[in-house]
């Protein structure tokens, strides 16, 4: 199957800054891609370009559509949850389900109602009477009932408590995701998505600085806990990052062979957040 998203030479300039700087990437179907970057790195701009919400220069193909010219057709195949509370505040549960059921050709009403039945949401309830967590539940119920090929999540769990956050990703994995679907998610709560991602993309200052699947990340990056006596030898291998824990040094290596690292100490797979912090060093400096 061909790629879901193909971008080449994507650039977007705002008045004062370059939000996307000649970005190229490809996302194949059946993946869960984490697009991760510091504030203002261009994550949201990239997603907006994919959704046809903003103009840009370069080539972009999403499911065979050009988002600039065929946005309304594209949205029949793509679902989108922006950070919480973008549902209109005046609308009632009943009304929004009715509306989406009649304007979206791929919406399965019974699926949505089954999902809503598992929540505390009432048919006559207005969005303005709901907590943030409930609004996301409603939005997720709508989105999960749509048989879309691509789901885009932009900070979907921002401001939610831990119960809602866990439940959100659990629902997504258990009831929604399959090999025909693709999910692109941006978030700052990296730990939460770490175990569900299949692919990782780091973006910094409008450039993609890392684009790899999780297996490749595990093979390429290694975290080694080194005793003080071996620390100088480890520094010779040009680590990405070094930090001290309980008198030992933890080094993060990029593309150094296991044979060289094993004598130094215990090798672990680095967490995405450690990797992220090491990669983005000096961003705000």
């Amino acid at each position: 199957m061909s790629a879901v998203i193909t971008a080449s030479g994507l650039s977007k300039r705002y008045k004062t800054s370059l939000a996307l700087d000649d970005v190229s990437f490809q996302i194949p179907p059946g993946r869960i891609v984490g697009l991760i970057g510091p504030n203002g790195a261009g994550k949201t701009t990239a997603l907006k370009a994919v959704l046809g919400l903003t103009d840009f220069s370069g080539e972009l193909n999403v499911l065979g559509f050009d988002p600039r010219k065929q946005r309304d057709k594209l949205m029949g195949e793509v679902c989108f949850i922006a950070d919480v509370a973008v549902l209109p505040r005046w609308i009632r549960v009943r009304e929004v389900v009715d509306f989406v059921a009649h304007v979206h050709p791929r919406f399965d009403r019974s699926k949505c109602e089954a999902f809503l039945a598992r929540t505390k949401l009432q048919a006559g309830q207005r969005v303005r009477q709901m907590s943030k967590g409930m609004i996301v539940q409603l939005h997720l119920a709508l989105v999960m009932a749509i048989d879309a090929k691509l789901l885009i999540l932009d900070e979907p769990t921002l401001g939610l408590d831990i119960l809602y956050r866990k439940q959100f990703y659990q629902n997504l994995l258990e009831d929604y995701f399959d090999e025909n679907k693709t999910i692109v998610v941006t978030t700052h709560q990296v730990e939460e998505v770490e175990h569900i991602l299949t692919d990782l993309m780091f973006i910094r200052d409008g450039k993609i600085v890392l684009d790899a699947d999780m297996d490749a990340v595990g093979a390429r990056f290694a975290e080694v806990m080194v005793n003080a006596d071996n620390a100088d030898a480890a520094r010779q291998l040009k680590p990405l990052d070094e930090r001290q824990v309980f008198g030992k040094s933890i080094f993060l290596f990029d593309g150094v062979s296991r044979d060289l690292l094993e004598p130094l100490g215990e090798i672990r797979r680095p967490s995405i957040s450690d990797l992220f912090v090491a990669t983005m060093k000096g961003t705000y400096a």
């Binding site: 959704l51 919400l53 922006a82 549902l87 979206h104």
Partner: peptide, 10 residues
């Protein structure tokens, strides 16, 4: 910002 919801529909 509910425009983001309306614009997510075809």
């Amino acid at each position: 910002r509910s425009i983001l919801f309306w614009k997510s529909l075809p």
